[in-house]
Design a protein around this nucleic acid. Structure first.
Lengths: 248, 248
DNA sequence: GAGTGGTCTAGACCACGAG
DNA sequence: TCGTGGTCTAGACCACTCA
């Protein structure tokens, strides 16, 4: 028994705009009429109209640019995070590979990092922040934490080759034995929203990846944030038939 | 360079309420002062106060009950969807297993189902809808589609044992060979929000699982919707060291 | 019926972007 | 500077819950 009380003005307007966008009445990249004009057209007040636009923004159909206008978003290339580590997590399988900017700093373990990394609080860590861009629009944010004792040879300072997030997997000194990837959906923090240039009402996929080596040490923790409208995660499991239960 | 323009009143209020909740000044299950009272206390108008509450609602800290009040949410048990099918996707690993209600119907393939299932449009399908409850609060919504030709013996009508979603995996007649799980984050549809009793501003984790058998046929498609504040998905990959690349 | 949240209005004022 | 969106106000009215 689904609740369907009364279509609110906001939903009616959102539906209408959605329809006009999907039918091409408003084309991709085009600027919508100003909010004041739209409010007049629909005979609603500006807050009501804005709440309708907020819905479309949350769906990734509309991009709001302060002081400029509301724009129909070009259909975004969806990028796919491939989980399971059988192959390196690739953003690189795309025709025009994403441009990745990197920043490396040394910090101390704080908040939940000590737990995840199984290190004492305030332990020295190397933090690597990756931001992948597709043209001008950011497509993902990744913060990777590695205990300083296990620092790799790569990424000493300048931008490393933009192949993939986990370059550290390329040459595993202590062999990796387990990778855990935990995913959840939430709204972005204001900082994430600003970094990814998304509204705070667009859901993000939050992924925490913990890589453990054969000695039981946590080699790497990666915190990925993927905007829900332009990224998803894919896990492929093949059953080897003669190796049915890979665990316990 | 993080943008930090001016803390809006909304954010200030939300931060303050968050703090009061986390410090136990407002206790779990307690009803907050009415919106009018809070608006007076913070000397803001009701819409502003409500937008602050909407933030907390989106974080799952506050539950709004129309005509009754705003309540501090009891810390919810997080349920974990285990992907990768090595073991059946269990909700059952919890002390008090979730109660699952089931509804089975026969429908015709529509919208994107034909593509996913690799069947012609309007093919007959069996649709199974599972809703898992933890006490009174819904914890997950699952729609499972099976081509009628491959129908299983179980779930003919009444509630099957609430073990797990994919009972169909228990005895795979044609052996499964691949399971693909695609996850994304988005806001719920109004229907999903009503079914899961969540606000429309709480992000959900949307999971599409496609199981393929050795003959290349799609045995099952499952569409899961998990509220972001009470569920996540976990994928564990073990590297067998002597079997490093399970693919290609 | 009393009190709550849900929706909406008709403005005001500020911050930003482009010319 | 001008037009845009961003934030906020001080109400009004409706819908729901509970006693």
């Amino acid at each position: 028994m689904v609740i369907r009380p009364v279509p609110s003005r906001r939903d009616v307007i959102a539906d209408d705009l959605r329809h006009q966008i999907s039918t091409g009445h408003f084309k991709a990249g085009e600027r919508l009429p100003s909010e004041a004009q739209l409010a007049t057209r629909y005979t609603v007040s500006t807050p009501t109209l804005r709440s309708a636009l907020a819905l479309l923004q949350g769906e990734g159909l509309v991009e709001k640019i302060h002081g400029n206008g509301n724009f129909v978003r070009r259909p975004l290339r969806r990028i796919t995070y491939r989980g399971g580590v059988a192959e390196p997590p690739t953003w690189a399988t795309f025709s025009a590979p994403l441009r990745v900017t990197t920043r490396t700093t040394n910090i101390e373990a704080h908040s939940h990092l000590p737990t995840l990394l199984k290190v004492p609080p305030r332990s020295p860590l190397t933090e690597v922040v990756h931001i992948a861009h597709d043209g001008k629009t950011p497509h993902s944010l990744a913060c990777i934490y590695v205990p300083c004792g296990l620092a790799q040879a790569d990424s000493p300072g300048a931008t490393p080759p933009p192949e993939q997030i986990a370059a550290s997997f390329a040459d595993p000194r202590p062999p990796l034995i387990e990778v855990q990837e935990r995913l959840s959906a939430r709204l972005p923090t204001p900082e994430e929203a600003a970094t990814l240039r998304i509204g705070t009402s667009l859901a993000v996929l939050s992924l925490t990846r913990v890589a453990t080596d054969a000695a039981g040490r946590v080699v790497e923790v990666a915190l990925l944030v993927l905007p829900g409208d332009r990224a998803d995660a894919l896990f492929t499991t093949r059953l080897n038939l003669n190796d049915r239960t890979s665990k316990a």
